[in-house]
Design a binder for these strands. Structure first.
Length: 186
DNA sequence: AGTATGATTGCCT
DNA sequence: GGCAATCATACTG
């Protein structure tokens, strides 16, 4: 087996934390990801295959790229089996490979802002629609990481599913965890 | 720290 | 016409 288990998108979003994602040699370990699938009202694949989401119904391990808010290009890894319409949104990576290229593309110095968020990942890795349907370059983790689940961000439907996964120890996530439980004992 | 707003484009009702 | 898997900026406290 040369890649992560991509059959179930929720498991895949969890297991992809720590895997290094590269686009033309630029990238780093995934530290935040979200699962989406066809029976999920928040998913672009909800309601079946169309022209724009076709890549999501292709074979697992490839990219699905979409335009967000008319401005950003965001990157997903398709999960399978083929035809399922499932995927994992890459929400944040740690800038490790090609950091200077990422800085130039982002017009920023601060490493924490280079790729913390799906739109920022898209800009840092020069993601465009032509990437949709191509095979993702994934490399195995070089160390173990903690992984925690949290609600997904930026959606208005199916908001309660804890299908966002992140490394709570990484400073390169788009949003850190809530510091304390909402209610605490006296 | 939290909250608000504009940018921008394609798909949907 | 409304809305979106977002971000940067400009406020307020």
């Amino acid at each position: 087996m040369t890649g992560p288990d991509l059959l179930d998108p929720v498991r895949a979003a969890h297991d992809l934390i720590g895997w290094t994602l590269l686009v033309d040699g630029v990238g780093g370990p995934i530290v935040e990801a979200e699962a989406y699938h066809e029976t999920d009202p928040a998913s672009h694949s909800f309601g079946g295959e169309r022209v724009r989401n076709a890549a999501m119904f292709g074979p697992p391990g490839r990219f699905y790229v979409y335009r967000s808010y008319g401005i950003h290009w965001c990157l997903n890894i398709v999960c399978g089996p083929p035809g399922e319409g499932a995927g994992v949104l890459i929400r944040a990576i740690e800038p490790v490979a090609g950091v200077e290229v990422m800085r130039r593309r982002r017009g920023l110095d601060d490493a924490r802002l280079l790729s913390a968020g799906p739109g920022r990942v898209g800009q840092a890795l020069a993601v465009g629609p032509e990437l949709s349907g191509t095979v993702a370059d994934l490399r195995p983790p070089d160390r173990r990481r903690r992984v925690v689940a949290a609600p997904r961000i930026g959606i208005s439907k199916a908001v309660d599913h804890p299908w966002r996964f992140l490394d709570p120890d990484s400073p390169y996530v788009s949003r850190r965890l809530p510091r304390r439980p909402v209610t605490s004992p006296p």
